[in-house]
Amino acid sequence: MMVSSVVLSALVAASSVSVAQAAPESSVTARNAGKVMRELPLPAGDLVSTAAFMNDAGQIVGTTDDGRGHYHPVRWEADRSITHLATLNGPTHPGTKALAADGTVAGSAATPDGHEHAVTWGGAGALMRLEEPTGFADSVANDINDHHVAVGSVSVNSTTRPVRWGADGKATMLDMLLHMTHSQATHVNDRGEIFGWASQYNAKHAVRWDLSGQVTDLGNLGGTWGEVRGVNDRGTVVGSAGALNGDTLAARAWPAQTFHALAGARQSSGAIAVNNSDVAIGGIGYDAVQWQGNELIPLRPMPDVRDTKVHSLNEAGTSTGASGKYAVTWDATGQPTELPVEPSTRSAYGWVINGPGHVLGYAQRWGEGRRAVVWS
């Protein structure tokens, strides 16, 4: 299963962690050799592309549109040919949520009556609608692992319940946390452990379902709020949790344990991804950071730039994101490498980095819309 990637747009505040000086420009440029930016091709008639997922095989999932509100869900194969993902002919375009190692996609699609239904898309782009237990009208698949186990939620009216789907599309309802009225499964690892949230009124709890289906509250830091943002195949969880004074702090839960604050966590901090070596990334205020065990490592900005945002992490500990207008990768020591762009590019950023080190992201040229690109 790919390491999760999430935007850090919510993690903005006046607080910050001290950031080391930017790497000399000569060293940044030297590490840049070899990568080339290539724009993802568009189907005939379409003008704009967006993409959010890439697996280690180089398959990419996203949407293209013609600039007039007509969206088309697609998967770019490793050779950059385009596979169109089937729809249910509903009023909204399908929402893709996750991508497995073999190219299977999970998400939701709408029927003409406007209801959303959990689906997966196979190798040829064919759609399989996942089962909804009797009494539920809508559903969504939020994640899928490499064994084709999908997780998400089913709902009717104002009731939301967590669910697990097997590879055959059959649904199993997951247990609810005691006294909670709403719940949703958001992540599943390759072991089959499931993670998500449960809520009641103003309280939102991060939860784990173990292999036997037993639900556990991951706790908080004295407040009433917790959120899972990334998990790994060991069962380590990272995210954010509320403190007694109302602060939002970056948090981690080791396998079978509950949340604790990560090193250096301050108001408006959060962790967003963790790899199978338990290296985590996230943000503290306006600064992108990495955690290696209990060590906090700032992800340094490019020369003459202050801000950093990190979006994704691979198993080698290399991460990607942006520093100012530059798309960058960071090595395990926090040193940035600028990703190359064409001279007409106004800004760019890295969104996903896969195992081989290829980066999926975006580039925007002067006078044009944003386009999905790959650096490899």
Rank of each mutant, 00 (worst) to 15 (best):
L11P: 00
V17Q: 04
E25Q: 09
E25I: 15
R31Q: 09
G34T: 04
V36W: 01
R38P: 07
E39R: 05
L40G: 05
L40A: 08
L47A: 11
T50P: 00
T50W: 06
A51K: 02
A52I: 08
M54C: 09
M54I: 15
N55G: 09
Q59N: 08
V61D: 06
G62H: 07
G62L: 05
T63S: 12
D66T: 10
R68E: 12
Y71A: 11
R75N: 06
W76C: 05
A78R: 15
D79A: 10
I82K: 06
H84P: 08
T92W: 05
T92Y: 09
P94L: 04
P94Y: 08
G95C: 10
A98V: 13
D102V: 13
A106R: 00
G107Q: 05
S108C: 11
D113S: 12
G114H: 14
G114Q: 10
H115L: 15
V119Y: 00
G123H: 14
M128G: 02
R129V: 14
L130C: 02
E131S: 08
P133E: 05
P133F: 02
T134L: 14
A137C: 09
D138G: 03
N145Y: 06
T159Y: 09
V163P: 03
V163M: 06
A167D: 08
A171T: 14
M173P: 09
L174M: 12
L177I: 06
S183G: 08
S183R: 09
T186E: 12
R191I: 11
R191L: 15
R191N: 07
G192A: 13
G196H: 00
Y201N: 09
Q214Y: 07
Q214W: 09
G222R: 06
E227F: 06
G230W: 11
V231G: 02
L244K: 11
A250H: 08
A251P: 02
A251Q: 05
R252P: 03
Q257P: 00
T258L: 04
G264R: 12
A265P: 14
I272C: 02
A273P: 02
V274D: 02
N275G: 11
N276D: 11
V279E: 01
A280F: 07
D287G: 05
Q290W: 07
L296R: 08
V305D: 11
V305G: 01
D307I: 15
K309H: 07
L313N: 04
N314Y: 03
A316Q: 10
T320M: 12
A322H: 05
S323L: 13
Y326S: 09
A327Y: 03
D331P: 10
A332I: 15
L339D: 03
S347P: 00
S347K: 04
Y349W: 15
W351I: 14
I353A: 01
W366P: 01
G367F: 13
W375D: 00
